[in-house]
Amino acid sequence: MDLSNLPLAYWLLLILAILFGCILGYFFGRKTKGSPMKDQLQSLEQANSALRKELENCMASRRELEHSGSPEQLPFDPVSARKALGRKVTQDDLKIIEGIGPKIEGLFHNYDIKTWQALSGLTVSKCQEVLDSGGNRFRVHDPASWPMQAKMAAEGKWKVLSRWQQEHLHGKL
């Protein structure tokens, strides 16, 4: 078939039909293609907004707790501590924490951390910083559980502390 014999009007009509089809396809494809993505984006933005509000509420609660002051510390009871741990315990003796010995206790004292309450308020990274200040010989120690153990001691939860120390040898979580 020889296409050169077709009149010019047929060529123009064919080009216009193709152009019109492309334009219609573009608009219909764009409208249906973008809609599910827009819906998904909108739902994710709503979820993000809800999570941000929840985070703000949590942060506000945390600030409120921090500003309310430290909870009243229970009076130290050496009899119940000795009964639960099986050894003599003096108040704010950091060595009862599994993994802390006399030298590490000295490092904490250098940072003015001398009570169970003070140790319980530290982050693990701060405990690691205290250890690092002592040099390479303290590198083998893992302070991950020390604030938690100190909190148990500060709250007078001697049986819980004793059970935890028996279940977790060498203070490892």
Rank of each mutant, 00 (worst) to 15 (best):
E54G: 03
L55H: 08
E56T: 11
A60E: 14
S61R: 13
S61K: 05
L65S: 13
E66C: 11
E66G: 04
G69D: 14
S70F: 02
L74S: 04
L74T: 12
L74Q: 09
F76L: 01
F76H: 03
D77Q: 01
V79W: 05
R82T: 01
L85M: 08
R87W: 09
R87N: 04
K88P: 09
K88H: 08
Q91C: 02
Q91L: 07
D92N: 14
K95N: 15
I96V: 15
I100E: 13
I100P: 12
P102E: 11
P102H: 10
K103T: 09
K103F: 03
E105I: 02
E105C: 01
E105P: 00
G106V: 00
L107M: 05
F108I: 01
H109P: 07
D112K: 09
I113K: 08
K114A: 03
T115S: 12
S120F: 03
L122P: 15
L122D: 06
L122N: 01
V124Y: 01
S125C: 03
K126T: 12
V130W: 11
V130H: 04
L131T: 02
D132A: 14
S133T: 14
S133Q: 03
G134E: 13
G134T: 06
G135A: 01
V140Q: 06
D142V: 00
P143T: 02
S145K: 06
S145F: 12
W146E: 05
W146Q: 13
P147L: 00
P147M: 02
P147A: 12
M148P: 06
Q149S: 07
A150V: 06
A153E: 14
A154R: 08
E155Q: 12
G156T: 00
G156W: 10
V160T: 05
V160I: 06
V160Q: 03
V160D: 10
L161Y: 12
S162I: 04
R163Q: 04
R163L: 08
W164G: 13
W164K: 02
Q165C: 11
L169W: 10
H170M: 05
